[in-house]
């Protein structure tokens, strides 16, 4: 107890720095950012145009990664995000084409996305099969339904007559900030406040960390998990709208391969596969790391195939690093 107060403070500062898992992830992002900046021909990576692309295009994926990370903290997986996205994208297009007002069409699409997520959650918790399986099936199911329904064609989406709607989902604010970036930051803040400051966040962590303890404390863990699945569905449908409004075309390949990238972003951001561990700020940077690799390699004119190789290396090495730091964290925690 009678320790030198200054030493104690220094110790606790060090401890709290190590405790901030998200900081490590931020540094990995920063390093990648700087590497791409210096190595890209003509430093093109940091050009206005490219940063716009990186932030606007990336946000569609990034918000999904946040929701997936939240779900993973509750102890479940979702492999169906890309398929929910493509299904919602087509639903939105169909509703709009059939004459439904664009705002109503958007609201309906968000509702449908939420219901799909809720359905995945319901099946998972009521039958007790692993969500890995439920959502693997759902991934194939929704992609298949969309392919069948759209016949696999690309279809134009023309919303120029609704400039106010468009400007809420694409373009820039004050001529500089991509509006998608604001969505990304806004959703990060909402989810982060819920996860780390709200009582429901505490229940999500508890459910993922020790379901039996959470149940014994009177937490309805089934409902907690279903709510997280529903959030994933909601965010996927939002991402679908952001994407189709920006691109102006429906493609039946939209969201293809995002499910594993979203899990990768969460894991790189410090989320445990077993649930109960993770930080939203960490996932925020984790998502940006995945986006920055994808974008940076394109800018450096490295063949697309290499992206996957680099993903592989970054995912494995960052998890190894964060495991080592986690170990230190526990050592610091004891005293």
């Amino acid at each position: 107890m009678k320790e030198n107060p200054q030493k104690k403070m220094k110790k606790s500062l060090m401890a709290s720095l190590i405790r901030m898992r998200s900081l490590n992830v931020f540094f990995i992002f920063l390093i990648l950012f700087l590497v791409f900046w210096f190595l890209s021909p003509g430093h093109r990576f940091a050009s206005r145009e490219n940063l716009d692309v990186f932030l606007a295009f990336g946000a569609e994926f990034n918000i999904i990664a946040l929701a997936v990370g939240m779900l993973m903290i509750s102890g479940e997986f979702d492999l169906s995000v890309g398929s929910i996205l493509v299904f919602c994208s087509f639903t939105f297009l169909k509703l709009f084409d059939s004459g439904v007002h664009i705002v109503l069409a958007a609201i309906l699409t968000l509702g449908i996305g939420t219901l799909i997520g809720l359905g995945h959650g319901y099946i998972t918790v009521k039958t007790g099969i692993p969500s890995f399986i439920t959502t693997l099936g759902a991934m194939m199911f929704w992609r298949g339904v969309t392919l069948f329904w759209s016949q696999g064609f690309q279809k134009p989406f023309e919303s120029a007559e609704f400039p106010a709607f468009n400007s809420a989902f694409t373009g820039t604010v004050a001529g500089i900030v991509p509006v998608q970036l604001l969505w990304f930051i806004g959703i990060t803040l909402v989810i982060a406040f819920i996860m780390h400051y709200h009582k429901y966040g505490n229940r999500i962590f508890a459910t993922g960390d020790n379901k039996l303890a959470a149940k014994a404390m009177g937490i309805n863990t089934d409902r907690v998990k279903m709510a997280c699945f529903a959030v994933v569905g909601l965010i996927c449908s939002l991402s679908a709208i952001l994407q189709i409004v920006r691109v102006g075309t429906f493609s039946s390949r939209a969201g293809d391969g995002w499910e594993l990238k979203a899990i990768a972003a969460s894991v790189v951001g410090g989320t445990a596969l077993t649930g109960g561990i993770g930080s939203i700020v960490g996932i925020f940077w984790g998502a940006l790391i995945i986006s920055v690799i994808e974008n940076g390699l394109v800018v450096m004119r490295i063949p697309y195939a290499w992206t996957f190789t680099v993903f592989g290396v970054v995912i494995v090495s960052s998890v190894i690093i964060s495991n080592i730091i986690e170990q230190r964290r526990i050592e610091f925690g004891t005293r």
Partner: peptide
């Protein structure tokens, strides 16, 4: 083993 969530 069910009383507490270890990482919380």
């Amino acid at each position: 083993e069910q009383a507490l969530a270890p990482h919380v």
